[in-house]
Structures are given as C-alpha cells and as structure tokens.
C-alpha cells in the first residue's frame, strides 16, 4: 500500500531521474489521495499526453527498479478488449498504471486538460508536473475501469463529498460515448448500485436512458 507521504516522496524521487521535464495527469486512487478522499492506494494511475513523456517517465522508474508486468488479472476481460490499455510497472507492492491520452476509450482532450483540480510540481533536477483530474472525471473513470475496489472508491467519494456534480458526470459520459461504447452502460450500472445508499434524482437516469436509445 502507498500512503500520501510515500506517493509524494516517490514522485520527488522520480523527478530526480527524469531526463526532461514531464507533465502528466493523476487519476484513480492517486487523484483521490491528492484530494484527501483516502489515505492509501494500491497503484499509481497516470495519464500522459505524449508518448515521449511516457517514455521519459518509464526510463526514470526503470532506473528505480520497476519492471513491466501484464494487465491480465488486474483489469476485467471486457475492459482489456479495448485497444487503449495502460503499460504497467511494478516493484514489490507498488504499481504504476501508465496510460497514453486515453483510458480505455475515455479521451483526455482539451475540455479535461484545462479543467483540473490541483497541480503538484515536483521540482528537483527536472520538473515532474502532476495535474489532478476533477472529482467528476475520477468518478466517471472509476465506472469505466471496473477493477476490484473501484466501486468502493466511488462510494467513498460520494460519502465524503456532498457537492458532486452528477450532471457534469453524465454530460461527460455522453460526450465520450463515441470513444467508448460501454461508458453509458457502465455509469448506469454504478449509479443503480449507488441508488441503494444515496439519493440520485430520477432526471439523471432519464438523461442517461435518452442517450442510450
């Protein structure tokens, strides 16, 4: 397990081994820790906008002893059918899931790039800039990735944050449906599960069903 402090120290360490400045976006558990939703995570999920930056980052973590592993057994079969799989690296308990511009069909485009929650600059010899995606995108991505504990994470966010903008989540899912045909179904499934414990207005479901038809 990686704690908030471990995560920050690890990023600082990695920035020492970078050959050039790198910018990436944090999602999943990593982003949740930056928000303060949780205090530990199993893996560090990052998405890069260019292959060059991902390669520079991989070179740095390989110098630190991380080895590439397979995504099988971690992501579901259905999720892995998608072309946009992450490259995964691990060392002991710690694991990096490194995506390129796209998370199982969810495109990181201009709308998302300029709408982030926080920016962490790790400045040593080179600069590692980690931008934290907005909570709405984190929830939506957690619905798409379908890993063990992803639903628990969504529940944690919903429980801790009363100001989640569900309209924004649904609008983004609709916008992304061309890239990922399952996104609306996955989101609906998670929302139906959530409905058992929290109140979600029926107009949200109506909006989803209209788009599915």
């Amino acid at each position: 397990m990686i704690t908030v402090q471990d995560q920050e120290e690890l990023f600082e360490l990695i920035s020492n081994y970078l050959e050039e400045d790198v910018e990436c976006f944090a999602l999943g558990g990593t982003a949740m820790m930056f928000y303060g939703y949780k205090i530990t995570t199993k893996d560090i999920d990052l998405v890069f906008l260019t292959e060059k930056e991902r390669i520079i980052f991989i070179n740095a973590i390989e110098q630190l002893g991380y080895k590439q592993i397979s995504a099988k057994g971690i992501y579901s079969e259905k999720t892995l059918l998608n072309q946009q799989r992450p490259l995964m690296f691990s060392r002991g308990d710690e694991r990096f899931d490194l995506f390129l511009k796209n998370i199982f069909g969810f495109q990181i485009d201009e709308n998302i790039i300029f709408d982030f929650f926080a920016r962490h600059d790790f400045i040593t010899k080179k600069e590692l800039i980690v931008k934290v995606l907005n909570k709405e995108y984190i929830v939506l991505l957690k619905s798409v990735t379908n890993r063990e504990k992803d639903f628990e994470d969504i529940q944690t966010i919903v429980k801790k944050d009363k100001h989640l903008d569900w309209d924004k989540i649904i609008d983004e899912a609709i916008r992304q449906k061309e890239n990922n045909q399952w996104i609306l179904l996955d989101l609906e499934e998670k929302m139906n599960e959530l409905k058992k414990s929290i109140f979600l207005p029926s107009k949200l479901f109506k909006k989803l069903y209209e788009e599915q038809d």
Partner: peptide, 10 residues
C-alpha cells in the same frame, strides 16, 4: 482556478 502545490523551489 486550481490548487497549486510546489514540492521544491518555485
């Protein structure tokens, strides 16, 4: 517009 946290010198 966002929270900016610097680890190092800015």
């Amino acid at each position: 517009k966002f929270n900016h946290i610097v680890h190092g010198s800015y």
